[in-house]
């Protein structure tokens, strides 16, 4: 890739991710609507929502810690953007990785939640305070499970901490990998704040909780960050658990060569992404919200047990060369 083209590419990535995120938002709303026998919003509705919010007044509560309150959405947004850039990099230029990027990814994935906790606790609202404490507990709940799930994959791929290598070496169809994938899927459900884990926002309990005091452009930034998470988190799952996201076709196009045989892997990759997204949406629409203590128990006890089993299976499988374990 020539240097100008390279620069152009990275300029395209961020707006592209935002657009994809809004599209994913629309898919979430449309599929939910179809499940619920509603018509659902038009394609551009998430975009209209953000534009409308951008034009609204920003109200900051009188007793809020203004700087933290205002900075939090930007920090959260920066975190998910960085994460998505890292994941695109893994997909587009797998040859130039850096060691241990999975650990960086874990950190970047916590960043939006941390920013949300900071921002809402700075808003001096009792509803937000309840939401904050719930979000904190939730993060503590699912973070452990997510890390354990990643350890399963790391064991299976022989100890590499490199996302690009993991993407190529994962044995998708093995018991331990499927277990780890399911748990990680639920962790992503919680990270996205989807039912049954929308505990921190719980509209009918604490009236949007953590987001309660946000308005105008700041709320729009949160919405955008959420939209990007809808791209980045399923993409992460696809890369780590489902054998990677193959975009060789696109890189070839960027280089100026058109290779029709490479279309299929790309389509297949997109299918994997959509599959993960639809799974998330279906879980969202077939469950009631759980209580925070139930969520923590779920992640620590049930998911914990499943993951320990998966780790044992993976270790046995690795040492004895049984790839389906």
């Amino acid at each position: 890739m020539s240097v100008p083209l390279n620069v152009l590419f990275w300029i395209v990535v961020i707006p592209g991710t935002v657009v994809l995120g809004l599209l994913a938002c629309w898919i979430v709303r449309k599929v939910s609507a179809l499940v619920q026998w509603r018509v659902g919003p038009p394609l551009f509705q998430p975009f209209y929502d953000v534009v409308k919010l951008m034009g609204k007044e920003i109200l900051v509560p009188q007793e809020a810690q203004k700087a933290v309150f205002m900075a939090a959405p930007l920090v959260g947004m920066a975190g998910v953007l960085l994460l998505s850039i890292m994941l695109w990099r893994v997909a587009f230029v797998p040859a130039k990785p850096f060691v241990g990027d999975i650990i960086v990814a874990i950190y970047l994935m916590v960043l939006p939640s941390l920013a949300l906790i900071l921002g809402s606790s700075a808003s001096a609202s009792p509803h937000a305070a309840v939401g904050t404490s719930r979000e904190m507990k939730l993060v503590m709940g699912y973070e452990l499970s997510l890390v354990l799930a990643l350890i399963v994959v790391i064991i299976k791929t022989g100890g590499t901490l490199n996302l690009a290598e993991i993407a190529q070496h994962t044995t998708v169809f093995s018991i331990s990998n499927m277990l780890a994938f399911l748990v990680a899927l639920l962790c992503v459900q919680a990270k996205l704040g989807f039912v049954p884990f929308d505990i921190a926002e719980a509209e009918t309990e604490v009236a949007s909780g953590v987001l309660m005091e946000y308005s105008g452009a700041l709320l729009a930034v949160w919405k955008l960050a959420h939209a990007i998470m809808l791209v980045a988190l399923p993409l992460f799952l696809v890369i780590v658990f489902l054998g990677g996201f193959d975009v060789t076709f696109l890189t070839m196009v960027f280089r100026g060569t058109f290779e029709p045989t490479l279309i299929m892997p790309l389509v297949w990759s997109i299918c994997k992404y959509v599959l993960v997204l639809v799974l998330l949406i279906l879980i969202k629409n077939t469950n009631p919200r759980v209580r925070i203590d139930q969520a923590m128990k779920f992640f620590w006890v049930y998911c914990g047990v499943a993951l320990v089993a998966a780790i044992i299976l993976a270790t046995i499988g690795k040492n004895f060369g049984v790839s389906w374990l």
């Binding site: 509209e203 009918t204 469950n287 009631p288 919200r289």
Partner: peptide, 13 residues
């Protein structure tokens, strides 16, 4: 009741 506990599918159905 479904809506109150976040189960909007039950609500709509």
């Amino acid at each position: 009741a479904g809506h109150f506990i976040g189960y909007d599918t039950v609500f709509m159905w």
